[in-house]
Design a binder for these strands. Sequence first.
DNA 1: ACGTGTTGTCAACATGCGTTGGCAAACGTA
DNA 2: TACGTTTGCCAACGCATGTTGACAACACGT
Lengths: 192, 192
Amino acid sequence: MSSTENQQAVRRSDATRAAILAAARERFAADGYERATIRAIARDAKIDPSMVMRYYDSKAGLFAAAVAIDPHLPDLPVEPREAIGRTLVSHFLTLWEEHEELTALMRVGATDPAAADRMQSVLREQLIPLARRVGPEPEQAPMRAALCAAAVLGLALTRYVLRFPASVALGHEEIVDWLGPTVQRYLTAPTP
Amino acid sequence: MSSTENQQAVRRSDATRAAILAAARERFAADGYERATIRAIARDAKIDPSMVMRYYDSKAGLFAAAVAIDPHLPDLPVEPREAIGRTLVSHFLTLWEEHEELTALMRVGATDPAAADRMQSVLREQLIPLARRVGPEPEQAPMRAALCAAAVLGLALTRYVLRFPASVALGHEEIVDWLGPTVQRYLTAPTP
DNA sequence: ACGTGTTGTCAACATGCGTTGGCAAACGTA
DNA sequence: TACGTTTGCCAACGCATGTTGACAACACGT
């Protein structure tokens, strides 16, 4: 222990740990799992590659630490019910622009089953319960949530991963205006 | 030349070439670019890795040959105009289920800029012109096409790449029923 | 000032990769 | 049968990767 009576151990290496994590998030988001090499991440963080192993055990461990994030969907205001579509889209958009690790998770999820599972767990633990609360016929919740995921992740794919110019050019409000009604319908409309 | 007067040279190795290409499509679709090794593809095709180099020059050349595909969107019937959404979704769905190289292209596009460019070229040369023909205000065509791409690729992502169970479970017609109106609105509805 | 644990560097390792060139067998033609 | 060409296999190369262990520099409580 460094201090006299801290509950949480404050290590002198915390700055290094953070630098590694920041560089890792950047590289994983930009290059995906395989092309983001430990050596490159270490170079960005201005430390030796072996430090990565000391603090995160392995490349897989580093990735797990880099993409540990919780979207906190259950905290979303569900009222008024006819605005839930726009609320959800806007929330996701903000989330994505503040956390580049989401792009990393998506890039890697395209190839790595473990990362794909992590994305699915967000669907299972957050989107499906929400769909169950706001939509008709609770047994349709998984399907309705999957449709919403497709709508939102599709935009994230074209905008943040593939970077289609027309998708990048869209403004925050424009996206909410177009996708909001879509998500709203997926969640609350009767079966077509 | 093997035969006496064939215009197209029919080589004895065509079977091998085809086997390599089939194995490559499968591996690229399943594992992405980096994890799909030439050695593994050669093992699947029951030939030596060096044959891949002989017939396709390099791994990049093999990938390019494996994902050479044309969606033929311009041939789509554009009438009646109010059915274009369902027509487009149904066409894409069939296309995707018949050509696993589309999944390969998507998996790789998540990491490789060249593959992402190929996907973008489909948007530019096929979807945008279509949007220009059926939608109001031609200068909005790129945006409307990008929204459609997001809707369709989002479904392909959750269904064929990430394999979310609820998305995989959807039937062809169910998808058309849900996504059809979305795409229809993206293409033809007035600006919200 | 000393000794202990932490933080960081360095060099090396084993492995798997894409890729290459040489050589043997099979084939088609004369 | 003899020849050149095509098809295939084999062994090896150079290289980049994740990972390891030994060792130096530093901080800090005594």
